[in-house]
């Protein structure tokens, strides 16, 4: 069963949330997920592009109360 690690990057500016996700992905197993919470407007556009470029999988993007939640699955 996959595990999910949550990162609260609310208040961090670009490229902080992205770098935190990448660091977290390095530490988890293939099939596990990272969820990031971000108030940075760029994250909601930049993170899906990065995920697509390097070959991971974006599971979901949700707009919450004043922030975005994005979930990435490690695929390699």
């Amino acid at each position: 069963m996959s595990q999910r690690k949550t990162i609260d990057a609310r208040g961090a500016f670009c490229p902080g949330p992205l770098m935190e996700v990448i660091a977290a992905l390095k530490l988890i197993e293939i099939g596990d997920e990272v969820e990031v919470w971000s108030t940075d407007q760029g994250t909601v556009k930049d993170l899906p592009i990065w995920v697509d470029k390097v070959g991971h999988k974006l599971i979901e993007t949700n707009e919450c109360d004043g922030y975005w939640s994005l979930v990435v699955e490690k695929t390699k």
């Binding site: 490229p15 902080g16 770098m19 390095k26």
Partner: peptide, 18 residues
């Protein structure tokens, strides 16, 4: 003032993660 990621630390992160 708004504590954006430190420039020098960004280079370090790039080295560590990429």
């Amino acid at each position: 003032d708004k504590k954006a990621p430190d420039a020098i630390e960004l280079f370090g992160q790039g080295k560590m993660l990429g």
